[in-house]
Simulated scan of single mutants.
Amino acid sequence: MNVVFAADYIASSPGAFIRSLTKLGKKIIENRGKVAFLFSEKRFYLEKLRNTGIVYVCNNTTNRNFSLQSLVNLTRAVRKIKADIIHIHFVGMAYLIAASLLKFLFCYKLIVHWRCIPDCITKKKSKFRYKFSPYFYNFLSKRFIDANIVISKAISKILIEHSFSPQDKVYIIYNGVDPEELTKYNYAEAQVVIEKLIDTKVFSKPIVGMVADYSIEKDHKTFIKAADLVRQQNPDVIFLIVGSERKFFGKGIKEDILRMIESLRLKENVFLIDKCLYATEIIPRFDIGVLCSHNEGLGNVIIEYMMAGVPVIGTNTEGIGEVIHDGVTGYLISPGRYNELADRIIFLLKNSEVKIKMGINGKKYAEEKFSLENWIKNIINLYNKILDS
């Protein structure tokens, strides 16, 4: 099989999405297939993908809108590898419309991969395009899209209930994480990396980390308010925020976070890390991993925390509730409840046996259910099913 992967958003650092896509591409090539990639922005790490397939960049699609360049580059990619499948990630208009327009000409199968909850659901805006979106996607699903992959039951429920897609075209495939990514660095090695990044010694100090790009949905402010409460009881705790600004969706948020840290006098306790190439290099040193999102399709970093044997605390929203077993692998808290988050952090730091047990439980559960090997197998099985139909 020959596959074109297209994504209208990619992070500034090579996260789990790029790493998993690289390994999936290599698997397709091992099976004598061909691969091409279409992205909306130039990133330094895309050069590594050239060993796997052809890489095209459509610079004018960073706003996720359809453009002539996206149509031209998709045409070039399809013709170059004689594509059987177009697999679109991060649903915007750029490649979805282009792939729909070209489908009758090239007769490939079209798969859309929903890695987050649709904007028209999370943002609840009154603009016409947000209200019209479900009907538009429903039209595309019935006429052009052969399969909608979702990363959680929560997204599946939303797509079906809001008529984005017929139920028989929705397939749940949980994200996968390579356990080896979390074992490249041990506790001590990860500590060295952290100390270099924040220019502060953290020996024997508890570290609570949150890996999340700067956006309103990730709710970093709840994390900082909780840090303030925890600091009052344990002034040695270090809080790390690891992320980067999104070009269109995170402007100004980092500045707000820095002002909040300043006003609460937390500069000795809370550090922002935006120069970390791989979060997996520092996660093994975390004592607790946190994700405070208001909404989340799944929360891939929760899986990474667990793969590293780190107990987790996450908000009980959509996909996060499918990953965390409350009281077993970590704790679920209500969104925005910083006092509840602080209480859970304080409890785990005081009760090391519970913390260690949760870390062990989470690692075992993540390796069984969210391995990258299983993810690749499930994706390729779906490819074969769609092609056979």
Rank of each mutant, 00 (worst) to 15 (best):
residue 106 F to Y: 10
residue 128 F to I: 15
residue 98 A to I: 06
residue 114 W to R: 02
residue 113 H to V: 04
residue 115 R to K: 11
residue 110 L to R: 02
residue 117 I to F: 00
residue 108 Y to N: 00
residue 127 K to I: 14
residue 99 A to L: 06
residue 99 A to N: 06
residue 119 D to V: 14
residue 104 F to D: 10
residue 107 C to Y: 07
residue 118 P to T: 05
residue 112 V to P: 03
residue 124 K to Y: 12
residue 103 K to W: 05
residue 105 L to I: 10
residue 105 L to A: 09
residue 124 K to H: 13
residue 106 F to V: 06
residue 99 A to T: 05
residue 112 V to R: 02
residue 127 K to Q: 12
residue 118 P to R: 00
residue 127 K to Y: 14
residue 112 V to I: 09
residue 101 L to P: 01
residue 125 K to Y: 15
residue 122 T to V: 15
residue 100 S to H: 07
residue 127 K to M: 14
residue 98 A to N: 08
residue 108 Y to R: 03
residue 116 C to N: 13
residue 126 S to N: 12
residue 108 Y to I: 01
residue 113 H to G: 02
residue 117 I to N: 01
residue 106 F to G: 05
residue 106 F to W: 07
residue 121 I to Y: 09
residue 109 K to F: 01
residue 125 K to Q: 15
residue 99 A to H: 06
residue 101 L to Y: 03
residue 114 W to D: 00
residue 104 F to H: 08
residue 108 Y to F: 07
residue 111 I to L: 07
residue 110 L to Q: 00
residue 107 C to W: 08
residue 127 K to A: 11
residue 104 F to V: 06
residue 121 I to M: 07
residue 122 T to H: 10
residue 114 W to A: 00
residue 119 D to G: 12
residue 105 L to E: 07
residue 122 T to G: 11
residue 122 T to R: 10
residue 103 K to S: 03
residue 118 P to E: 03
residue 119 D to Q: 13
residue 103 K to M: 05
residue 129 R to Y: 15
residue 121 I to D: 03
residue 127 K to W: 12
residue 123 K to L: 10
residue 120 C to L: 12
residue 110 L to W: 00
residue 100 S to T: 09
residue 120 C to R: 13
residue 126 S to W: 09
residue 102 L to H: 01
residue 102 L to C: 03
residue 126 S to R: 11
residue 116 C to W: 13
residue 118 P to V: 01
residue 120 C to T: 12
residue 101 L to G: 02
residue 111 I to F: 05
residue 101 L to C: 06
residue 129 R to A: 13
residue 128 F to W: 15
residue 129 R to P: 11
residue 119 D to T: 13
residue 98 A to P: 08
residue 101 L to D: 01
residue 108 Y to C: 01
residue 103 K to F: 05
residue 99 A to Q: 06
residue 105 L to T: 11
residue 122 T to L: 11
residue 126 S to D: 12
residue 125 K to W: 14
residue 117 I to G: 01
residue 115 R to L: 12
residue 123 K to E: 09
residue 110 L to G: 03
residue 121 I to H: 06
residue 120 C to M: 11
residue 105 L to H: 09
residue 111 I to G: 02
residue 108 Y to A: 00
residue 129 R to I: 15
residue 114 W to M: 05
residue 124 K to W: 12
residue 123 K to D: 07
residue 124 K to D: 14
residue 103 K to V: 05
residue 129 R to W: 15
residue 106 F to R: 04
residue 121 I to T: 06
residue 113 H to I: 05
residue 113 H to Q: 08
residue 114 W to Q: 03
residue 118 P to W: 03
residue 98 A to S: 10
residue 121 I to N: 04
residue 118 P to F: 02
residue 124 K to T: 12
residue 104 F to W: 09
residue 115 R to M: 12
residue 100 S to R: 08
residue 116 C to S: 14
residue 104 F to Y: 09
residue 103 K to T: 06
residue 121 I to W: 04
residue 118 P to M: 02
residue 117 I to D: 02
residue 126 S to P: 05
residue 118 P to H: 02
residue 100 S to Q: 07
residue 118 P to Y: 05
residue 114 W to T: 01
residue 106 F to L: 04
residue 106 F to P: 04
residue 112 V to D: 02
residue 99 A to Y: 06
residue 122 T to E: 13
residue 121 I to G: 04
residue 111 I to Q: 01
residue 105 L to F: 10
residue 129 R to M: 14
residue 126 S to Q: 10
residue 107 C to K: 09
residue 129 R to Q: 15
residue 126 S to C: 10
residue 102 L to E: 04
residue 102 L to I: 04
residue 116 C to T: 13
residue 102 L to K: 05
residue 124 K to F: 12
